[in-house]
Amino acid sequence: MSAIRETYYIYRRNLKIWLVPATFLPPLFISGLLYILFAATFSEVTNLGGFATADYNAFLVSWIIVQAVVFSGGDSGFALLTDMMSGYFDKLLLAPINRFSILFGSLLVSATRAVAQAVIIIAIAFGLGVSFKTGFLGILVLIGFAAVFGLAWSCLSIVIAIKTRSVQATQSSFVLFFPFIFLTTAFMPEELLSGWFRVAVKANPVTYVTEAMRVLVVEGWTLTPVLQGLWVTVGTVVPLMLLTTWLYRRATT
């Protein structure tokens, strides 16, 4: 259908913009750096027990993917806002197209970005000698988690972009994402956490997604945590998608 065709071409255009090295390299560099730095810092910590693996590189990889897709979710709002400020967004709205193809063309880039990031981080993990317990299929599920969960954060940044119409606010939305990323079982399993931190970690949806992905790397097909992660992902993405679509609709009428 024509709406799918329009979405595809707008997606291609947005993808081209993202594929500028200055845009896609820095987040990858930071992810790689975080991975290597934290892995080096905590390499012996698995001796404490409770990690389900002796390989800290394997323990860490799921969180590295999650932080990458969460942080770069902010790019979606920023890209949309840039088009709004330049007037190009109006130009797109002037064409006799379904206006949601503009939004979905942008969200698809977010999903593509998340997939690319996950693939590259997994490749680094392989390079570091990580063995994935659930094999190829598990890796596909891991990538799926990254793509869908990344979408939630892209929606959030688009919501911020539409509500604030401020480049500064949208750019600094990652500050808001920070606690979500770090108040998790990023570096330690839950059993080793205590006090308010443990409470916050348990309340944070990012924890469940990180755990689900981690289980797939270090344990295998343990259903309960994987399903928990799945529900949390769906429960985050669906309302945020609805909110984004609703706000977008309002902003374009």
Partner: peptide, 13 residues
């Protein structure tokens, strides 16, 4: 066709 005052162009294309 509509051409705007604050020109809405795709600078990166």
């Amino acid at each position: 066709g509509f051409a705007m005052q604050e020109v809405g162009l795709d600078d990166l294309a």
